[in-house]
């Protein structure tokens, strides 16, 4: 990845914007928590905000937004197995519904 100094300067502006957005989202997520919503909406909102923040970090700070195919393939594979792992709680409870 050889980028010219001018390009880097442009990048820096993006980084600062991302930083501001992350700070804003932190404030929002804490603010929501003070509303003491019931569990389901609280979880959904908190996870949405966290996912947005997480994707900002991954896309811009970790440059995932213009990363190579190989890395994506690895991450997609990991994502699938991660989903399998996160299905554990489901495995414990799904049979109760049938």
């Amino acid at each position: 990845m050889s980028r010219s100094p001018e390009e880097i300067k442009k990048h820096v502006r993006v980084y600062v914007n991302v930083f501001v957005a992350l700070m804003g989202l932190t404030v929002i997520t804490v603010a929501i928590s003070y509303l003491h919503l019931s569990v389901v909406p609280a979880v959904i909102l908190a996870l949405i905000v966290a996912t947005i923040k997480g994707s900002l970090v991954a896309s811009y700070f970790m440059h995932l937004i213009n990363e190579k195919k190989m890395i994506f393939a690895t991450l997609i594979l990991t994502g699938i197995f991660f989903a399998a792992l996160m299905s554990l709680p489901l495995i414990f409870h799904i049979d109760k519904f049938y």
């Binding site: 997520t29 804490v30 929501i32 928590s33 569990v39 609280a42 979880v43 908190a46 996870l47 905000v49 966290a50 923040k53 997480g54 970090v57 991954a58 700070f61 970790m62």
Partner: peptide, 22 residues
């Protein structure tokens, strides 16, 4: 090294709401 450091940040971004706010 940065990739790793951002990842540690990213984990915290999820830990924080999950443990503290919910």
């Amino acid at each position: 090294a940065g990739l790793y450091w951002h990842f540690v940040d990213l984990v915290w971004i999820f830990l924080f709401p999950v443990l503290y706010l919910l």
